[in-house]
Write a protein that binds this DNA or RNA. Sequence first.
DNA 1: GCAAAAGTGTTATCCCTACACCCATGA
DNA 2: TCATGGGTGTAGGGATAACACTTTTGC
Lengths: 221, 221
Amino acid sequence: MYHYPCPHPAVTTDIALFTVQQQQLQVVLIRRENPPYQNQWALPGGFVDSEEDLDSCAVRELEEETGISGIYLEQLYTFGQPDRDPRERVITIAYYALMAASQLALRPASDARTAAWHPVTDLPGLAFDHADIIALAQQRLAAKLDYSTIAFNLMPPRFTLSELQQVYEIIRNEPLDKRNFRKRVMAYDCLQETGERRRNGSHRPAMLYKVKTPGQLAIVK
Amino acid sequence: MYHYPCPHPAVTTDIALFTVQQQQLQVVLIRRENPPYQNQWALPGGFVDSEEDLDSCAVRELEEETGISGIYLEQLYTFGQPDRDPRERVITIAYYALMAASQLALRPASDARTAAWHPVTDLPGLAFDHADIIALAQQRLAAKLDYSTIAFNLMPPRFTLSELQQVYEIIRNEPLDKRNFRKRVMAYDCLQETGERRRNGSHRPAMLYKVKTPGQLAIVK
DNA sequence: GCAAAAGTGTTATCCCTACACCCATGA
DNA sequence: TCATGGGTGTAGGGATAACACTTTTGC
């Protein structure tokens, strides 16, 4: 097989998988079993296979290391500082992904014995430049809240408008007006009432909504 | 030197360099001297050196192949379809770059005998997936017009507001209201009157402006 | 009946849009 | 003096932001 006469670095994908849980934006980290950075926390990710698309690699690595699949995933940025891995030149295509807390079912797999959620406000020391990746992903997520329906990918199949509002408030880190919020998200025309209501304590039950076309990302306003 | 036991693809950067010239958005293409796609048009770009940052690689390749340097450059997206190069797996980190037409001084260099500007509306057949890269870059540029001062990077050191408006109109492909346009860009507070005026035909001379902090990208509105 | 969250409209303000005329110059 | 692009302000409309009370339930 032909090889171009040029350096051939290792190439990985890394995935910042977010959810909102316990009133916090959280990200999945795995504890590394092998050097470098053995026993440190890192993002799930790994080497791109020879006949594998980059997106597919991110999906596969996430599934292998956390057991999670079928969620929203988007390419974020490519990090290639020559010394970002102490052993060899490794270029990583970073992705970010979103899932509902309700779908939580972390399955630690072969090369990541421990996978766990961590609040982004309280991260442990991270391997490589993964802190930078998370920071950039968080920034992108916050920016996309303003002009897309990306946050719907953080919601379970059925949810109340108050729950949706909480997700927005947690990511933007500021309170929102209830009536204005409802007007805005309903204007997106992406949500549908289910007939059901959620009873949840000693107060009026809340209508449950679902996303009309799940997985779709609408650009709005 | 250590090598991770994984596939090691070739990695390149490719750069979509835009300017506005002759009432058109144009992009630099080079004619390929070597296979694959010999004699076809392609974006400037090339392999990432072993100790080289990705951004630096893009800057270097652009300089080597076109003689152009010192301009605005931003990472766009990473393309990694396994078969995007017929010879070997090649992953490319695509960049886009902007320059003023006034700075035009294409210097064809060693591995790109012919470098030339092409209107994006009338591109020749392109090597690899470079047509996709250009399309995405153009889309990103148009989107960024609406919420940043990115277009200022397409302007020469001194320019009139009418010239700036033309650049916006060409990229957005629609006419804009002169008074509203001026109000908006002046509100960015990024432009400064020079005392000078440009005399240009039998009509009132236009004030020349400059960007207060060139190279800076402000997020606005 | 009381506590607690759900649900709902109106008004004021701001921003964006539409729009037309005078100015300075060269020929 | 006329043709050409440069330069300027205002008014109306639409969208956003501020704001408070009633409803339904569990205890």
